[in-house]
Amino acid sequence: MIEKSRIAKFRIGQVVQHRHFGFRGVIFDVDPEFANTDEWYEAIPEDIRPSKEQPFYHLLAENEETEYIAYVSEQNLMEDETGEPLRHPQLPEYFAEDEDGDFISYAHTLN
């Protein structure tokens, strides 16, 4: 059986927004398909539960009240176009920020 490769639509360091819940975040890791627990997956209401066969993104996420880590399917993300700064306290652990305000992974700055 030939497995088709999964190409992520979004990249590490990109600021995205959740389509339904509106929270924003920066992608710090990507799974080519679902790689969390079945318990986590089953906790999502069935009528909005995404397919496991798509990229899932780890985000340094925030909403108006708090900052947290989120795990979100590609179908539920869109590019953030607000241009608003992010305040997540873990951003400096993962990224350097360039003069344009873009997030550059430290893994890419080691060259």
Rank of each mutant, 00 (worst) to 15 (best):
K52D: 06
E46Q: 12
E39K: 09
P92M: 08
P92G: 09
L60W: 00
E67M: 12
E74Q: 15
I27Y: 12
V15E: 05
Q75E: 11
E33G: 03
M1W: 09
P45D: 11
E97F: 01
S105K: 05
E93R: 13
Y94T: 02
D98P: 06
A96Q: 08
P92L: 15
N111K: 06
G83L: 05
D80K: 03
H108G: 00
T82Q: 11
N36L: 11
E74A: 13
N76L: 15
P50G: 09
I7G: 04
G13T: 01
S73Q: 07
E46C: 00
G83A: 07
Y57D: 09
Y71N: 02
E93T: 05
E3F: 15
P32C: 06
R11D: 14
G22V: 00
N63W: 00
S105R: 05
G101P: 02
D38K: 06
Y106K: 06
F21K: 07
Q54A: 01
I7E: 04
A61T: 02
Q54M: 14
D47N: 15
G13S: 02
F103V: 05
R6M: 11
Q90C: 08
V72K: 04
H18Q: 06
D98V: 01
A96M: 15
D31N: 10
Q54R: 11
S5W: 11
N63R: 05
Y41K: 08
Y106L: 01
E65M: 13
S105Q: 01
H18C: 02
E53Y: 10
A35E: 03
H108D: 15
T37A: 04
H108N: 13
T66G: 04
A70K: 08
I48W: 12
I27A: 03
E79A: 12
A107T: 09
A70R: 06
I27S: 03
E3Y: 11
D29I: 03
H108E: 15
E46R: 13
G25K: 00
I104G: 07
V26D: 10
I104K: 13
E53S: 10
D31T: 04
R19P: 01
M1C: 03
T66H: 11
A8E: 13
R11I: 12
F21G: 00
A61R: 05
E93I: 09
T66S: 14
D31Q: 14
I27M: 11
M1Y: 14
H18Y: 04
P89N: 01
F21H: 10
K52M: 15
L77G: 06
N63K: 03
R49C: 08
D102F: 15
K9M: 12
E74M: 10
I44S: 04
E74L: 09
Y94I: 07
D29F: 00
N36T: 01
I44G: 05
G83K: 02
D100E: 14
Q75M: 14
I27V: 14
L77P: 07
V26T: 09
L110R: 12
V16P: 07
K4R: 08
V15M: 04
N36R: 04
V72M: 10
G13Y: 10
I48L: 12
P89T: 03
V72E: 15
T82K: 05
E81Q: 15
E79T: 09
I48C: 08
G101W: 10
F23P: 00
H58C: 07
L77Q: 12
A96T: 04
E99M: 04
T82N: 13
N63F: 01
